[in-house]
Design a protein around this nucleic acid. Structure first.
Lengths: 266, 266
DNA sequence: CGACACCTTGAAGAGGTTCAAGAAATGTGG
DNA sequence: CCACATTTCTTGAACCTCTTCAAGGTGTCG
């Protein structure tokens, strides 16, 4: 359910690799970059590498790319070339069908990897939209594959990232298939705050980057239901909500809601 | 939504690798095996390999294992060692939580790979249960990794299998998040029959290997709703249903239901 | 400041669930 | 091979959750 993080990072902002950045702009919004001194490396790089292996991995991340809020990092049908590691910002991924259905399949934050959907057909099968101004590391997939043939730790890391995504989606299926509205929203809030906390943010306070409609799409609910459920949580004193600002007052109450009001036996 | 299959295979049953099988039983239900003359190789092996590469891959599949109906191939919490390629039979995968929730995350048939959930934590995070007597090829994952460092086509294949599973689950999220009962069941039937047809079975007739309750769990519905929806389809002349025997009379009607009654514009 | 996107709340309605009973199939042991 | 127990499936009726439709409020950005 969460990214494995040995210790919280400070604030999800990377110290710039000062010597490199902004010297060789590839185009209007791409710049060179190095992983080896990125604050997020514990999230998106394998641990315990030799120095020479770290250097090799630095070469994988060819460039960074800035993505303005509301614009797409990639879109359904586009050729798949690279995976992306999110440096800063917040994304949603969603699929849209010809008959007008739309489904948010996930929300992604700093240190998470997106683009895995494109590997199977060499085409992206969903859209990735920045919900706030963002910056990503562009990692050409053929170079990842090449390198992970040399560096077993990287190979293993790539496999784990993909497996983690599969397991995450199992959790979403459980949520969508078996939970009621309150349970879904409680699980959603707990998941978000947990991931934010792992990145050094508050355990109890969060700023929603997405609309009620996007939350609803992700949770299989209508935006009105999301809004009403928030209101209900407020009435019950579980959270404070001011638009997109949410403060969790009673984490345990949320956990009880998710766990069917059964106390955790483990 | 489906396994990519160049051409239908005959009946999903493998010709035995006669010289090998049953000579060296590893234990009561494991036998040696070779991929190179398995009828399913187009489904679970990369295409266009050199002969020597095929030989290497043969070595990956250490043994086969028989799984009796109703028993588990692996279970939540067990150590992850191998992926499994299904030779014959039919599986469900499902997750169960401490508080008693249960969710079927997929149904798998011959030629499909299961066990990917275990990679991220070296532990299986779901159960795989045989819904009929089954046989699988056991593929130790460390050998897969080792070999895919040598054989780029295998590496790519493993990545595609994992990506395909991610994309499949996106489809399930769309189903669970945005479809009504009829739409879900129609999509489910179309998906099943399509995968069966790719394996040489009928386009219109299928034998459900799972109960109404299991279908319901997968589709986020109660078993009564599944039953009622089947009955509705029967009334409308779209399918014939005799217990687990289903004959699709009007594939197009099912497609229209899934597509929101909007004619396919593509 | 005005336009627009987003959020909240109410009331009515639909779709799915729950509870219950009975029928059909399947498996078991004598 | 048959009788019985068990599991699975179907169907009805009442209920509940979530959706739909509608209106008004709040916040944001040019």
């Amino acid at each position: 359910m969460l990214e494995v993080t040995p210790e919280p990072l400070e604030r999800g902002r990377c110290a710039e690799a000062a010597s490199d950045s902004k010297i060789h702009p590839m185009n209007s919004h791409t710049i060179k970059v190095a992983c080896s001194n990125c604050n997020l490396r514990e999230l998106c790089m394998p641990m315990g590498l030799k120095a020479e292996e770290v250097d090799k991995i630095d070469e994988v991340v060819a460039v960074r790319r800035k993505v303005k809020r509301g614009t797409r990092l990639y879109a359904n049908g586009e050729k798949f070339v690279s995976l992306y590691a999110i440096r800063t910002g917040f994304f949603k991924t969603c699929i849209t069908t010809e008959d007008g259905r739309n489904q948010v399949t996930g929300f992604q934050m700093a240190g998470e990897i997106i683009g895995l959907d494109g590997i199977v057909k060499d085409l992206h099968t969903c859209d990735a939209v920045a919900l706030e101004d963002a910056e990503v590391c562009v990692m050409p997939f053929d170079r990842i594959e090449e390198l992970s043939r040399d560096v077993a730790a990287l190979q293993r890391h790539v496999h784990k990232i993909m497996s983690r995504e599969i397991v995450r989606e199992h959790g979403v299926m459980l949520l969508l298939g078996s939970m009621r509205a309150e349970e879904r929203l409680a699980a959603f809030l707990l998941n978000l705050v947990q991931r934010l906390h792992a990145r050094g943010f508050s355990q109890s306070e969060l700023l929603l980057r997405m609309t009620r409609e996007e939350i609803g799409s992700y949770l299989g609910l209508k935006l009105e239901t999301v809004s009403r459920t928030f209101s209900k949580f407020v009435e019950e004193g579980i959270v404070e909500v001011k638009q997109r600002h949410v403060r969790i007052l009673d984490t345990n109450a949320l956990k009880l809601i998710v766990n069917n009001n059964a106390p955790p036996c483990a």
